[in-house]
Each structure stands twice: as structure tokens, then as C-alpha cells.
Design a protein around this nucleic acid. Structure first.
Lengths: 250, 250
DNA sequence: GCACCAGCTATCATTGAGTGATAGTTTATC
DNA sequence: GATAAACTATCACTCAATGATAGCTGGTGC
């Protein structure tokens, strides 16, 4: 929202605020809802929204406004071109074939991570269209992304997000997060249990490109009623090999 | 490009031009490439692109700029909320299960149609991530969308796109298109052979919502070496039933 | 090492596009 | 048929976008 203090590039920022407001919405929004949510004047909202409608980025229905099909066009453009997407997909396919588990790749985007590719395993998780989902960095596999940052940036992040409620019910504070990060740095992977989703089990490793720069993370996901944590951990070599294969080609 | 004559809402229009320019690009673009392509001043391009980078809609790599992962977030928001997407998916699943063919749904967006949902059949077509792909209206299944328009609008369309080269090599002019449209109106479906893709065979029907408004189109796709046109046509009742099921719930 | 070029960034005066207040119109609701 | 909600249209003001120009940075060839 309200892209910060600076007052430059206002028009575009506001339009993107509107789009992301609709992205978060669980259903159609009225003009006044968007105005309130984005903290814009109704007239400004109207002009912006109408323009987005004209371009197909927003569509108007009986109950309000929602995102339009043109945003799918952008996503298509991304998936077809992006190196991470195109390189990761065959690796995920192979990984899921050998492990029979769901595998996915996500990348950092600001203070979140975004799932950019996923291949389902033998017992498909019933997530509806997971690709593009935005997830926090301090939960589950996101920690392998955090762990790669310089300490200073991590502290900055923690200051902004001091704690988070996990799916297990536990509230994760700074100490717990830092401890997990320490372990990720030590072991090179993160094993998460019921952090983001109750009963979910995931094993994640970072993906580094040829210049040793963090490019994203790769993980295997399953559920506790199908696989045990120990069993999942046996796939670590396969997973690391996959991360290496992706990183080498980026 | 350059969203038309009017000179209002310039900033946003230009930013969207930049995004769509990157969507069409087959690889990373330099700042100057984007400026040339979108017909913007380099300084303006720079400001716009940097802003989009800040927001994650564009990413900068060694070889230039490309779309960023945040556009996937928008797509996710669309797919999760959009009635057509959510309602169509289970119908497509069922349709593909019974026919063993690939089924898909697309909707109109301006002078194009956009694939919003697809479920693969027994012989998956090797399209890479088809969802979100923009396709012309006057080729293949798009004709069932055109056929539902008032004559006046069709004439308008034909004036702008007088002819199109089909995959078969044939050039489709106004007469051929109008004849196809006439037949679609008469029969309620369109059977296309090697129009968009050589060897591709598709059977498409319109989807009307409860208010008898055109909401999109549903089709079955296969290839000539797997299925014959006659065989494909036998699935017309199933297809129509699917279209009815989707339309009723929208 | 130096000159050169491409790609990107920063600065700044000008101006016209975006802004927001208000009034008007359409559409739904009781 | 009155009332409200949702959206649209109008318009003067002003501040943010604009585009020309100059500056910076990193790579390449000689």
C-alpha cells in the first residue's frame, strides 16, 4: 500500500496499489472499497480503475471490480521468458518423478517469496493454482532465503516482522527465527513441520547461480500422514543435486 | 502500442505499454529497446522501468530487463477469484477425463482471446504453459466468440484485421471468415483444422451465462494424427453439456 | 594505459496531466 | 415512487511527470 514516503512516480504507484489491492481481495470490490483500501480519493480511484478496465487488467462485474484476464497474459510472458521458470521446470519434473513428492521453486520478491514453479507428486496437495502465490519469508522454506542475507538485512527484516503465528499454533519470535537461520546456515537446508500449513512437511535448499548469488529456493513438500520427517530428509542429496542443476544453468 | 489518440491517463498507459512490450519480447530488453518499442523518451522509459523494478513487476538482469515474478502474483489473484476460472476447471477436468482430450476455456479481451484454463488429455500437447496466452479472435475457436457479436462490430473487426495467415498456409480473407461465422451461428460450434497450428484439430462452442451473455468459449483440442475430425465431432454433445454447466453457474 | 562507446543515472526548468472537490446520473432497494 | 448507493462527469489548480541535457560507470579495442 501507499508505496512509502517519497512522492515521486505517484500515478503509477497508485495504479499498482489498486492492482495489488484487488489481488489480495477475496472477491469483487466496489469502487469505494478500493478507494478506502488504497487510501485514494474516490475520483482518483475511479479514473485509475477505469483505465485499468479499458486495458483489461481489471474487469467490472455485477458485484464490483476484480482482476482481469490480461494479468494472465503478463504471467504467461514471465513464465515463457524467465530463466528460473524455464530451467527449473524440467528439474522439478525429474525430482518429483524420483521422489514421488511435490517439488517447487520460489524466489524472493521484496519481503515475500513467490512460488514460480511447481510439479505435483503422487499425492497431489490440494492447493488451488499455487503458482504466483505470495508467502512470507520467515515461514517454512522461506528461511533458506533469509539465511543467505547479510545479518544487517535480517535484523532489519526482523524489526519489521518481529513475530509470526505458525500453522501449528506456535508463535515464532525473533529468537526462534534466528536459531532456525543459524541452523540453515550450518546445515544448508531447512526442514519445516506445520509452519505454513498444519500437517505440511517440507525440505528446502537454496539455489545459487554461477556467481554464487542467491537465485531462489527449491523444496519438496509432503504431509505428515504420507511421509515422516526422517524419510523426507533422505531425499536431501537429490534435492541438493536439483538445486545445483538449476543454479549451474542460470 | 501508444494506447490510442487520447491524451489522458498517459502515465499509466505508458507503464502498461512497457509491461506489454516486455510480455511480447522473447528475451531481456535493454532500456533503449524498450524506449524504441514503446515510442517513449529514454528518460521517461527509465523512470517508468525503474519504478516497475522497485515494485517487482520488472526485473533487471545482465542482458536487460524482463518481467518480474510479481506479475505471477497478479495472475494468482485472478485465477483464485475469477468465476470463469474457478468454475471452468472442474468441468474441464471431467471433460478431459471422459474424452481423453485436452480441453480449455478462453475469454475475449479486446481484439484477442486469452486462455484462462486448460486441462491436458491423454496425449498432452507440448505447449509450454499455455495459460495466459493471447491468441487472435479470427483463428480457430476464436470464431465462436466473433460469431456472437453484432454484425456491426464484426465488420469493424474485419476492417482492422482484413486477413490472417493460417498455419495450413491458407490466407483467410473476409469472405472466408464471414462464411465460417455464418456456419458457427447456424450450427453452434466451430471445427478447426490446422488454423492456428499445423496438424491441430479443435472443436469449440460458446459459453453463455445465465443472462444469455457471451462469457467465453470452451473447446477440445487434439491433433490429426491422434483423432479424426469426424471422431472429434462425436464429442459435441459432451462439449455442449460442459458449456452449459459452466454457463449456468456464472 | 587511454580513448571510445553503450547503458544507465541524475538534474532541472517547464507545463500540462493528474488531482480532488463537487455536482450529476444511473441503478438498485425497500 | 422515494431513497440510497454506486458510478460518472466537470473543472480550476497545482504539483508531479516530462524531456532535454549532462554525468557516471563499466566494458572493449587499440
Amino acid at each position: 500500500m501507499g508505496a512509502g514516503g517519497g512522492n515521486q512516480g505517484r500515478t503509477l504507484d497508485r495504479a499498482l496499489d489498486v492492482l495489488e489491492c484487488l489481488e489480495r481481495a477475496r472477491g469483487p470490490l466496489r469502487l469505494s472499497d478500493i478507494a478506502r483500501e488504497t487510501d485514494l480519493h474516490l475520483a482518483t480511484t475511479q479514473r485509475t480503475v477505469n483505465q485499468l478496465v479499458r486495458r483489461g487488467y481489471v474487469q467490472q462485474g455485477r458485484l464490483g471490480y476484480s482482476l482481469g484476464p490480461v494479468v494472465l497474459g503478463l504471467a504467461h510472458g514471465f513464465v515463457v521468458n524467465d530463466r528460473m521458470s524455464t530451467i527449473a521446470t524440467p528439474v522439478l519434473t525429474e525430482l518429483s518423478a524420483t521422489t514421488r513428492l511435490t517439488s517447487s521453486v520460489f524466489v524472493r520478491s521484496g519481503d515475500e517469496r513467490i512460488l514460480v514453479a511447481r510439479v505435483s507428486g503422487a499425492d497431489p496437495l490440494r492447493y488451488q493454482f499455487p503458482i504466483g502465490r505470495r508467502v512470507p519469508l520467515d515461514v517454512g522454506g522461506g528461511k533458506v532465503l533469509l539465511a543467505a542475507w547479510p545479518d544487517e538485512e535480517i535484523e532489519d527484516y526482523v524489526r519489521r516482522f518481529p513475530e509470526v503465528a505458525l500453522a501449528s499454533g506456535r508463535v515464532q519470535g525473533e529468537r526462534a527465527l534466528m536459531e532456525d537461520i543459524r541452523r540453515v546456515r550450518e546445515n544448508g537446508y531447512h526442514l519445516s513441520e506445520s509452519e505454513r500449513e498444519l500437517g505440511a512437511l517440507s525440505l528446502s535448499v537454496p539455489v545459487y547461480d554461477a556467481d554464487k548469488e542467491l537465485a531462489g529456493a527449491l523444496n519438496l513438500v509432503t504431509t505428515t500422514d504420507v511421509t515422516s520427517a526422517e524419510e523426507l530428509l533422505t531425499w536431501l542429496p537429490e534435492l541438493s543435486r536439483g538445486a545445483g542443476a538449476i543454479g549451474a544453468r542460470i
